[in-house]
Every structure is written in C-alpha cells, then in structure tokens.
C-alpha cells in the first residue's frame, strides 16, 4: 500500500518544460522560421507549406491545423515528386538522394521558395534552412548566400540564433 501511495505522489506535478518528440519540434520550428521570413510568395493565400517525401505521418497537418502564419491560414501539401510542386511558400524536404536534391534545387531556382530540411549537409549543399539535433536540442543552420540569391528576407532575430553557412559547396 505504501508503495502505491509513493508512486501516486510521484505522479503529482506541474511543469512548463518537457521532453518533446523531435518530429513535433521540427514542425514547430518550421512554423517559426516561416514567421521570421518573407518572400514574394507571401501574397499566396493560404500560406502554403509543401512537404516532399513526408516521413512525419499526419504531424504537419495536425500541428498546423487552425494555425495562421502572417495572418493567413496554412495549407499543407504532400508530394512525392518535385515535378508535382505547385506554388508554395515553403518546401520542406526530407532526406533524399543527392541527384534528386540537385534536381529539386534546379527546379525551384528563382521561384522565391524557402527550402527547409532536416537532411544532413542540406545548407551546405544549397538548401536554405537546415534543422539538426545536437545533444537533445535542435539547432538551425542557414545558408545566407542562397537565401539572398532567392531574394528572401530573414529577420535578424532568426539569424542571431542560427549558425550561418557561408557559400554553396555544390
């Protein structure tokens, strides 16, 4: 009886901080990055995030349900082939083969689309925003040259806490 009582006492708590699922935090960071950037496609309504080779199940849809970015509703599109890309504000790319990655970059060149990925080396290979984990925390890398080339504005608050990758090593 005492053991049960002890365990019940342990279950009582209040807290603001938590251990979070990495995938959920990546989705949330994507929304923050969206809020801290502006591109010509900002006029697009609803705000569109296209997910290529989705590996998060329904997480993007669930997280962005009833959420607005820059005062607009958010639409999530899932595609398996870059050829099916429609007009979008953000293209989130899951890990893919290098040949396809080059193809993606070629096909969205000058289309003013912000690219985000959790793929290793993404920023250095010509992507714009890379989200990666280090010791149980997520971090952001930004390829500023690429962002500038595509005429995308990134708020200084985001640049301050991100690592800046210089150049494009493609």
């Amino acid at each position: 009886m005492k053991i049960i009582y002890f365990f019940l006492l342990l279950l009582i708590h209040t807290s603001l901080f938590a251990y979070e699922n990495e995938d959920r935090v990546i989705c949330a960071l994507t929304s923050k990055v969206a809020k801290f950037t502006k591109n010509n496609n900002s006029k697009l309504n609803p705000y569109t995030i296209t997910v290529l080779h989705n590996k998060f199940g329904t997480l993007f849809t669930d997280i962005f349900k009833n959420v607005t970015i820059n005062g607009k509703d958010v639409k999530i599109l899932y595609i398996e082939d870059i050829k099916n890309l429609q007009k979008t504000n953000i293209l989130f790319v899951f890990t893919t083969h290098i040949n396809e990655l080059n193809q993606i970059f070629s096909s969205i060149k000058d289309k003013n689309i912000l690219t985000i990925s959790n793929m290793r080396g993404f920023a250095q290979r010509g992507g714009m925003v890379q989200i990666y984990s280090q010791n149980q925390k997520l971090k952001i890398k930004i390829n500023l040259k690429k962002v500038n080339e595509e005429d995308i504005y990134i708020h200084s608050a985001l640049l301050r806490i991100a690592s800046i990758v210089q150049g494009d090593k493609r």
Binding site: F17, Y19, E20, N21, E22, K137, L138, A157
Partner: peptide, 10 residues
C-alpha cells in the same frame, strides 16, 4: 523560437 531551441527532445 528561443524556447523551442531550448526544448529538450526525447
């Protein structure tokens, strides 16, 4: 954004 980057992930 700062809190998200400070969030400990599983």
């Amino acid at each position: 954004l700062e809190n998200l980057l400070n969030t400990e992930i599983q």
